[in-house]
Design a protein around this nucleic acid. Sequence first.
DNA 1: AATGAATGAGTATTCATTCAT
DNA 2: CATGAATGAATACTCATTCAT
Lengths: 189, 189, 189, 189
Amino acid sequence: MEKGAAPGARRQNRGPSAAAENRAALVAAAREVFAADGYEAPLSAVARRAGVGQGSLYRHFPDRVSLAVAAFAENVSLLEDLAARPDSTLDECLDLLTEQAIASAAFMDMLSGHAGDPRVAPIAERVTAILARKLPGAQDAGRFGPEVRPEDLLMCIGMVSGLIAKTPDGIRRETAERAWALLRRALAP
Amino acid sequence: MEKGAAPGARRQNRGPSAAAENRAALVAAAREVFAADGYEAPLSAVARRAGVGQGSLYRHFPDRVSLAVAAFAENVSLLEDLAARPDSTLDECLDLLTEQAIASAAFMDMLSGHAGDPRVAPIAERVTAILARKLPGAQDAGRFGPEVRPEDLLMCIGMVSGLIAKTPDGIRRETAERAWALLRRALAP
Amino acid sequence: MEKGAAPGARRQNRGPSAAAENRAALVAAAREVFAADGYEAPLSAVARRAGVGQGSLYRHFPDRVSLAVAAFAENVSLLEDLAARPDSTLDECLDLLTEQAIASAAFMDMLSGHAGDPRVAPIAERVTAILARKLPGAQDAGRFGPEVRPEDLLMCIGMVSGLIAKTPDGIRRETAERAWALLRRALAP
Amino acid sequence: MEKGAAPGARRQNRGPSAAAENRAALVAAAREVFAADGYEAPLSAVARRAGVGQGSLYRHFPDRVSLAVAAFAENVSLLEDLAARPDSTLDECLDLLTEQAIASAAFMDMLSGHAGDPRVAPIAERVTAILARKLPGAQDAGRFGPEVRPEDLLMCIGMVSGLIAKTPDGIRRETAERAWALLRRALAP
DNA sequence: AATGAATGAGTATTCATTCAT
DNA sequence: CATGAATGAATACTCATTCAT
């Protein structure tokens, strides 16, 4: 078989203009794959599901962390959107975080697994900032004790998320509720 | 020689009398490897660290669960020993469990990862039994609220263990203390 | 754990007097294992089923061939017994061989797989001798053509056995009958 | 590097353009290895002989069957080419099949070993179709009896192939001829 | 900049064979 | 002479990462 023989049916190289699309497809695929198979899912699965070459994945996201950061950026945005609404409560923020953990434990795995990583730390800080901003109001409203600090809330979410991750899919919400019921007692005034 | 042709200098065959030593070495190695690299650590690393052939590992422990069960049997024994002392408290038992989780999160990973396994379930039950037995006294002593149930304690340990597992080695004890401080408020009367 | 610790519950060493029993158990186990899992079945399975140590297996039978030879000696004996009866026919002998092949293709695998082996060749010769002895009468009776030679019969059995070996368990007898129906036409006068 | 850390001098990555060459090399290697060591030969040997990484082998051929199907596709093509020639006879087709079986018994092993596999069944059907198409002419020419059916021919080939597979390399052709001489009597009018 | 094939180290597991007791 | 544990080579398969095109 000579050199140029049988080039195969590779996907059309759509050129540089496809870069943005590819990136978006990768991020979406990563969300799905991480949700389905966990944070340690093979990266090749992400590329495949995105319909994108392995090489492109590595060009956009040189490692797992950068991909995860991009994949879960939306989580933080939604959280900030919620927090930005003046009528939103800390409880609602925690609920959203819990829902996100239920949907994909990989989010919290990323946060806790690379705490020192300069790309991850800002995310953790943004989450903390949200909680810190919402906390005083919730304390005034008598929902949380005066001694509760934002780090406590983060730790609670971390614990609930860890619990959920080990819980079979079907009973995650129920388990999360059990855990929060207990933790609320700890956080109440 | 139909398979396994081998010229090289194989390890000295110390004979069947080494079986017990090997088993013990494997268990010890498993404790170390699980502690260092987590429950999913390669089994080959255990064999290597034990100074034992792969085959011997599989002879003694046909799968990961059986190895883990053996590796952590001591944890439960120590716990039962402690609980058997009339003057020991639930708090002490929880502290011991926490220490064990700090030493190796794999213990709790095993418990939660194979809840249905007939070799694991009895271990979980033994732990639960200890907590259940110690709880009433602790409640009478005013250390825990009357509504606290053994399952709550188990969930708390699970959460703390999950938290620890994701915490860098150096600050595990401190983190565990923070978490328990919070949880005690939830469990207090 | 000290040297003499935990000697384990090894089977009672019944001493030299058990040699004969062990040999018999191994032969019987080999028949069963070869029949169930084929000629390439693990030898360890034979030892296990015989309730005998691996070492004893190797002492009695230093390799797979010697074990197989012993295991299938009975096949040849039964065949010779049948052939020794003056009223028995070549057809009956072929039927018996076919039944043996159906019961365990390993018998023929051994014969054809080690044709040159000095332990196997005599067996093949004994089978050939039987066929050679019975053939003339069958030819006189008009069951086989005058040009048929014993080697032809052996080849036919080999082919049928090979066919059976590749046939799913359930339809072996039926397949063998189809094959023999065809071959009989070739062998008929 | 989360896995597969590699310092050593790995083979030059010849890039995607080598895909076709690699595939061809794998197919060729498979033919050789299957011919030499049988259908159960280690796949790693195929990769090694092809001068190709393990991963490439698995990329091109995810399992043994797909490799074997590719390796023996040529066999069927040649057979169909022969059958397509108006002057070719059934005898010639059977001869070619026999030659192929002599060259590599793995071809027939594949056919009989995965009868139900959707990748293998069409191949078996193509062979059957060829025989079915050539049979009537051969019957008219007085070479085969009127009662002979294509399945009979397939069974014969299966038997001859099985016989050959167990025959030492040197005398395969001679053995095949002996067998066919016998079978032709069965198939003759 | 996209593509996807290439690479090989790593992991789990099996089994023939040896050997101390 | 029996026992059965020890040994490690071999095999299948996966996946992170690189790289020619």
